[in-house]
Design a binder for these strands. Structure first.
Length: 488
RNA sequence: GCUCCGUUCGUCUAGUGGCCUAGGACGCUGGCCUCUCACGCCGGAAACACGGGUUCGAAUCCCGUACGGAGUACCA
């Protein structure tokens, strides 16, 4: 089985693209796993030179690599059916177009848009699109158009009757071809259009299963008809099976649009999502591994995936749940791995330098266990640990937290805490805890939360922080005392 | 307008005619744990769009209605 992902490099890659890519990947890998052979092809649909950009192309590859959706064949990695960028396949399209033009499956069309529009108004037809005016042009009519200097485009002649296919996710779907107008295969200047390139590529790359977004559902009858023609002229061997995946929706009832910040797939990476977390969440949009389970790995998905189980109804992207699933994956990682993955975020935030100094690396190793179980996204590591790494001169406290906890009485507590730990012989978590407990809780009779709140703000700068005593141990005696003192 | 697709808790879903007084998850919410936060644990509220069939029996099959979405390009 050969499947393909065929994004067009326009704009920043969308989470809907991630979902479609994931399902294609899982489909191919599951086929491979079960001995049916599975090849995942990545092809770039950049026929529209106006809209395609190199930035977008780069971003798409970056995204696939980050996600670990490795393609067996396609751009950059090659394969026997390349090239894999449509912009480099012009000769092929021209060749097929030539053959099609010699057949009766297409005809040259000289109409201008406004003329088609005017005719429709006049006839009152309910079908939009082309009306077939040039289907049976007489030689005289054609000569007249040519004499006017008109350039023809090649239009596909939709057959009469209906077109039915067994959609992999929706079951049987039928279109009456009277509602599917003849469509253009190329521009008047000869540039091939998506309507031609996608089927030609699927045919020549021997794609067996096409899994794509629901938005392409209505172009499927045209592609199936084109495949019939390509088979007749010897360009295609078989028509692929089609499966149309439901939309990924945003807020409200709209398809997640590129304008929506939630739509940008790489933004999740930049916020510190784990690729396995995003992938897992996105898999849930239309598919379930089991009735009572929703955290799983890519490998587990590959093993269980069956396109027939995919839901046909659109799903809303829920950031909260995406984060929860991501958190679950974060919890499954060993601390060293989280450290490794958090490093780029720590560097970007300036918490550690690049390269990391030995002392910082050591401190990080000790500090990570404190926060590994508390963060939901990698970027949060930097927020939580900043206070440990910052130079004393740059250390600041959250103003709101200071106002709330370091008032008159708060400062009294901090003073007592300072004196209690200043007397310590050994600077350890246990010793610090014992000393503070003895003085603040036992002697002064404060409730623990009242006692430790001000100390926490004094030392870490925030009301919410990693565990206090451990933090003080890691900060060291000198710096801890200095911060307690500076809070007074 | 026309064509096609869709409709189970707020959201994602399980459910393929009897196991459903509809299960799980996120979110929300009550409590426990607790030096903050988070984790963890125990509880709670919350759904088969509507109307007709078919059937001994329907969330599940069929038809209609309503609602939602998409497509309707010399974009992909």
């Amino acid at each position: 089985m050969r499947v393909r992902m065929a994004p067009s490099p326009t704009g920043s890659p969308h989470v809907g693209l991630v979902r479609t890519a994931l399902f294609n990947y899982a489909f191919a890998k599951h086929a491979e796993l079960t001995g049916r052979g599975g090849t995942f092809v990545l092809r770039i649909e950049d026929t529209d030179k106006e809209r395609s950009t190199e930035e977008s192309y780069t971003a798409i590859l970056e995204l696939f690599r980050w996600l670990g959706l490795t393609w067996d064949e396609g751009v950059e990695v090659g394969g026997s059916y390349g090239p894999y960028r449509q912009s480099e396949r012009g000769d092929l399209y021209r060749d097929v177009l030539g053959k099609l033009r010699e057949s009766s499956y297409t005809y040259d069309c000289y109409c201008r848009n406004d003329e088609v529009e005017a005719r429709r108004k006049e006839s009152g037809s309910k079908v939009m699109g082309y009306d077939g005016f040039c289907r049976e042009l007489s030689p005289e009519q054609r000569d007249a158009f040519v004499a006017e200097g008109r350039e023809p485009l090649v239009r596909f002649r939709m057959p009469d009757g209906s077109i039915t296919w067994d959609d992999l996710v929706r079951g049987e779907v039928t279109f009456e071809t009277q509602f599917v107008p003849d469509f253009a295969l190329c521009r008047a200047n000869g540039d091939p259009l998506y309507t031609l390139t996608a089927p030609v590529d699927d045919a020549t790359m021997r794609i067996t299963h096409v899994l794509r977004g629901e938005d392409l559902l209505s172009s499927t009858p045209r592609q199936i008809a084109l495949f019939e023609a390509m088979r007749a002229i010897g360009v295609a061997e078989a028509t692929p099976l089609y499966g149309h995946l439901p939309y990924v929706m945003g807020e409200g009832n709209k398809k997640l649009s590129k304008r929506d910040p939630q739509a940008h797939a790489l933004a999740y990476r930049d916020q510190g999502f784990l690729p396995e977390g995003l992938l897992n969440y996105v898999a849930l949009l239309g598919w379930a591994i089991a009735a009572d389970r929703d955290v799983f790995t890519l490998e587990e998905m590959v093993e269980a995936f069956d396109i027939a189980d995919v839901n046909a109804n659109p799903a809303r992207f829920d950031l909260k749940k995406a984060e929860a699933i991501n958190t679950a994956h974060l919890r499954m990682l060993p601390v060293e791995e989280i450290t490794h993955r958090a490093l780029p975020f720590l560097k970007a935030a300036g918490v550690v330098g690049d390269p990391v100094r030995d002392a910082d690396a050591q401190l990080l190793e000790l500090a990570m266990p404190l926060v590994a179980e508390r963060v939901n996204k990698l970027a949060e590591v930097a927020d939580m640990l900043g206070f440990l790494f910052v130079d004393e001169a740059d250390f600041t406290r959250d103003e709101a937290d200071v106002a709330k906890l370091l008032d008159e009485t708060g400062r009294g507590v901090v003073k007592a805490a300072h004196d209690a730990v200043a007397a310590l012989d050994t600077w350890s978590t246990q010793a610090i805890q014992d000393a503070l407990q003895a003085t603040l809780v036992d002697e002064m009779g404060l409730k623990p939360r009242v006692a430790y709140g001000p100390v926490r703000v004094a030392v870490t700068g925030r009301r919410v922080s990693p565990p206090l005593f451990e933090s003080m141990e890691l900060l060291g005696r000198e710096r801890s005392l200095a911060r307690l003192a500076s809070a007074l």
